[in-house]
Structure formats: structure tokens, C-alpha cells
Amino acid sequence: MNRKGKDKMGMRLRENIYQAVLWFILLILAATMLVPFLYVLMLSFTDASAYVAGAFNLWPKKFSLAAYGLILKGSGFLNALKSTLIITVIGTPLSLFLNAGLAYCLSKPIPGKSFLNKYVMFTMLFSAGMVPNFMNIKALHLLDNYLACILPAACGAWSIMVMRSFFQSLPAELEEAAMIDGCGQLRIFGVIVLPLSKAMLASMTLFSFVSYWNTYFNSIMYMTTTAKSTLQVYVQKVVLSSGMSSSDMVDMQSVVQNVVPQEVTRMAAVVVVILPILVIYPFLQKYFQAGMMVGAVKG
């Protein structure tokens, strides 16, 4: 009896040590993911008087919002924000509507279903390439039009397949019962199927929102007016292009007078660009694990 108790204690101790080591490793890993953001966030509040170029700071000695003021005043940021907002606000619901509709269509035993499946899969399999895509957008007269950033990313075979397998996994009885009650097909989709798919739709909303918010490639490809390019292009110009070329992106005078150090401005630019994702992420995060699993388990 006594020995058994000791064994149990030893086991519990071993388990605790094991868990502590696990926690340690995972905490370090989580830190490598989070610390870069915290570092950028902290330094973006540094006041010019406390800033020493080239010195290593973790914590600003004096706080200031000057860098944010500078960014918000510059026309570069406001234009980029406007473009990104237009693309995201139109693109996200449109993309959800197109993908969910097509996925629901493919989840039903409709005539021509196998052809339509192939039609969707082909888009995942083969790409015409960068130049033909560009010529196509040009031929559609969409160059410099926000639709050129919205439409290419609106339909994705992967999202459609994940949604389709989700719709197929819903119990058929509910829809059949509604049909017997004389409910039309569109009403069934809107009143029964969509509410049942809330978790999946929430994760798809997050994916779609993020992909539009992060629009970079389509912007540099198709938007010829600088004022119409997106926030990601803006952040690239502020952070990654050196010297004077970034001057049109922020208020010139403040830069010349060195009111706000360049490094701090750069960090503030990164913060404003990722802020919406950081805000929306924790709310939708609990859904996307459930939503992802549907696709993951199948793969």
C-alpha cells in the first residue's frame, strides 16, 4: 500500500516535470511568434527626444503618438487604406457568396455535377500564368479598377471543396422535412443550411478577409495609379524602400525636420496595417479550428 502510494507520487512528479519542460519549449515557440509584434508595437510609441539611432531599446523611455499622427496625416496612408477597405469590404462578402453558392450547388446530386466538379478542380490544377492573366484583365478593361484586385481572389477551388464537404456532412433529414413543408430551395439554403454552417462560414470569412486585406500581388500587377495601391504596398514602400523614396508616403516636412525618427515611423506603419487582423483574429479564431478540421480530416 505504502509503496504503491510512493509510486503514484513519483509518477505525478515525473508528469509534472514533463509538463514543465513541455510548457517551457512551447512558451519559447509562442514567444518567437509574438515578440516581434510586441517589439514593433512598443517602439512605435517612442518619442523623438528619447530616440537614439542605432541604440537597442525594448521599452520606450518616453511615449509619443507622433509617428501615428504622421502616418494618419500623410495622403499615402489614407489612399492605401481607402483602396484596401474598398477591396476588403466588397471582396469578402462577394467571395463568401460566390463560394458558398457554388459549393452548395456541387453538394447536391444535380445533373452535370461531375463536369462542374472538374470545372472547379481545373482552376486549382492549371494556371494560365502571369502574363496571360494580365492580358485578360487588360482585355476586360479592369486595369486600375478595384475589381482587378477583387475578382481574381474571389473564387478558390480549395474553399469550395471545403465548403462542399461541409454541406454534404449536414443531416439530409432537415432539408427533406423543410421540403415537405413546402419550403423552396433558396429558402432552405438561406434559412436552414446557412445558419447551420455558422462556424464554417466564420472561418471562411476570416480567410477571405485576411486574403483581401493582404492584397499585394494583384495590386502591383493591376493597379497603375499609385494612389490606388493597397496598404501592403504602402507598408512595403515605407519600410523596405530606403531613403527619400518613402517621402511621398508620409508628411515630408516632419521627416525633414526629423520630428519623428524614420525607424519609429516604419514600425507605426506596420502596426496600423496589421491592427485589423489582430483585432478580428481572436474573435474568429475559435471558429476556424472547428472549420479547418472539416477540411483537414478529409484531406
Partner: peptide, 14 residues
Amino acid sequence: LLGIPGLVVMFLMY
């Protein structure tokens, strides 16, 4: 009808 808009956009873009 629900599937057609997606099919059209896919046709235009792919």
C-alpha cells in the same frame, strides 16, 4: 442559380 455566379467568375478569371 446559386452556383452560376461563382461559375461565371471562375470562367472570367481562370
